[in-house]
Every structure is written in structure tokens, then in C-alpha cells.
Nucleic acid binder design. Sequence first.
DNA 1: TCTATCATGTAACCAGTTACATGATTTT
DNA 2: AAAATCATGTAACTGGTTACATGATAGA
Lengths: 198, 198
Amino acid sequence: MEKRRKVANPLGLAVLAELLTGPMHPYEMGRRLQEHGKDRNIKYNRGSLYMVVEQLRKAGFVTEQETVRDTQRPERTVYAVTAEGRHEVYDWMRELVGKPRHEYPHFGVGLSLLSVLSPAESVELLGRRLAALTEETDDIRATVRTTVEGGVPWVFLVEEEYRLALLDAERHFVTELIEYLKQPDYVQAWQDIFGEKT
Amino acid sequence: MEKRRKVANPLGLAVLAELLTGPMHPYEMGRRLQEHGKDRNIKYNRGSLYMVVEQLRKAGFVTEQETVRDTQRPERTVYAVTAEGRHEVYDWMRELVGKPRHEYPHFGVGLSLLSVLSPAESVELLGRRLAALTEETDDIRATVRTTVEGGVPWVFLVEEEYRLALLDAERHFVTELIEYLKQPDYVQAWQDIFGEKT
DNA sequence: TCTATCATGTAACCAGTTACATGATTTT
DNA sequence: AAAATCATGTAACTGGTTACATGATAGA
């Protein structure tokens, strides 16, 4: 029986990881996440951030360290990671890296209901998807290139390489699927089964 | 500006799609989803099902058709898809198939924080992941084979082929990543940057 | 100085999950 | 016939998102 994590939101992990480099207040965590583009892999929005920090506090992974008031700006509370928090980061990371989790990609939903669309329409739509995928791939490659040229070590971009690997695989898959759906055999079969209403 | 869907949960789409084949009560929708293994691609649980059906009703995509009481079993309400519901299915499917959406895979989170783990530990963990990925791949292939032998046409399994394509790509990526992390260059660089605290 | 935009946080709302409830059927 | 399991639904809880609020700076 796997004990669930006290805090399940990946944003919580990101926060803990940031805090490993020193105490800070929530807004700054958010700023850094965005600056480093971590929000491409971890869903981020301010509301969730404050919520998650509060969850971490209740769970004992962080403590309120001090409340700074610059006499301007609303009061900002600074948080620091605790020993348990530190432990949680490593434990969580080990799980994330070491064990694959079942995913529910959006496209999977579309595919599992593909038969409601006519072969002709499916082919048309998949063609558009292919174009969009290619465009996205190019964008990512461009970003990676300029970032690396800017001096960022490659390890900090593995996530993007992963994304590229998945995108390439999907493009390949879609290309083949299109060919399959074009076969007269399939078109006929679809007609026979679903062909009544227009 | 994209107008958001009144009902956003993919389970809602699955329900509408089932209802295209005729009116039925929620429990049966659930049963079918599971029978056809759609719950591998669409997150399903009973609570969400009733919630989503209610959302669909409020949105005007389904109507309460009748309330059957067999004098046994709790009262079951039968729902039917409306014209708007029918329209929504197609519109939604077109979006799902035609336009890629940004995904947040779990592994991406792990990768984007990879640097908190030592190269040695990363390599070890990635090795385990690789094994697990291979196992899962084999499982899926086996299931697909027996299902097809059972007479189910191939189109009803595209989702699983997609899953396989992604898994293969991930395995390949992980294999290469392991090699990269083993390079003395990388190990040294990591030591230099993060190496202080054991 | 009026207006727009940034920095920062809170609170209300909505969606999703877990736990509970209850009658029917099957197994021991 | 007692216990276990299935069929079916509801309700309470928790998490996440959106919308709102407010002071500060900067641009017109």
C-alpha cells in the first residue's frame, strides 16, 4: 500500500526545490519558476502557489521564518525548508524519476473515440495536427539552441529534449495513422459499421 | 479568444459519445467505459461520473429522459443526448484530434529538477525506470495481441498503439540520458556546482 | 497628476475524489 | 441465514482556479 504524499501537487516539489537554495517569500518562488521556464513542465498560477505553500506548512515541510514589512509592499512572509522538507524532496524525486506513472494525454482521449469521426475527417484533422506538431518542435529547438548559446548547461534543458523526443514520436505515429486511415479497406469498414447517419 | 467548454472533463466527452448509441443511465455508461478499457485513457471514477452528467445536464447537452424504478434497485435516471450535445461531441473531437495541447507529464517534472540528484543516483534511478518501461511495453503489446485475436478491429486500439509509440520514445531517450550522465565531464561539472553538501 | 501596470495577497467559487449509505444477490 | 459482494447513488471534503483587492511605481 503506497502512502500518498501529504502534498501531491508538483508545484509543491518545485517550491521545496527552490527553498533548498535558501529561504524566500512566495512571490519570489513564483518569479523564479517562471524565469527558469519551469512553468513549462509544472503547472503554475499564483493562487495555487499560496495554497501549496500553506499545505507544505501544515505538513511540516516548511516553516514561516519571518514576516518582513518594508513599510511599503504588503507584508511578505519568508519561508524556509525544514529537515522533513529536505527529505521529502529527495524521496519525491526518486519516485518521479525511478517509477513511471500512468499518464492521460489529451490526444489519447481523442484517439480512443476516433471512430465517431469519418475517416475523411480524421485524415484532415490529423494533417492539421501534424503541421502544428512540426511548428511546435521547431519552436522548442530554436529556444533550446539560443538558451544553450546563452551559456546555460545542457542538463537544465533535459526536459525540453524529452518533450522533443515525445513530439517526434507522435509525429511519426500520426503520419502512419493517416496512411492507415486512407486505405479503402478501412474506409469501407467504417462505412459498414457507422455509415448510416450521413 | 478561445471560449472554454461548458464541461471540460474528458469523461464528459466519453459520456456523450456513449449516448450517441442510445439513452442510458449513468451506471451503465460507467460499466461500458470500463468494459471497453476506455478508462485507460480517460480518468474514471463513479463520483466524477455523476458530477459530470449533472454538468452536462445543466449545459443542455443531455436531458433526463425518464426515471425508471424496477421496484428493486435504487431509482435510475435515464439520460439522452440533445442536439447541442451531439454538436458538442463533434466539435470537441475535432479540437482534440486536430490541435495538440500542452501536456504536463510527470516525468517532465522529475527531469526539470534532475540536478538536485547526484549523477550516480540519477543513473541508478533511470535504470530502474527503464526496466519498468520495458515491462509495461510488453504488457500492452500482449494485451493488444490477445484483444485483436479476440476479433476487435484494430481502430479500436489506436490509443494503445499511441501509448506504445510514446513508451518506445521514452525508453530511447532514457537510455541516451543515462549514457550522458555517466560521462566524467558531467559528473565533474555537477560536483563543482552542487557538490558541497555530500 | 491621471492612468496604466506591476507587485502582492486573499477569498469565493467550482471541480474532483473519497467516504458513506442502502437494497439485492450470491456464497458459505 | 449470516457474511460477503454487487449495484447504485449521495454527500462531505479537499484541492485548484478565477476573480477581486490594494498599495506602488512609471508613463502620458
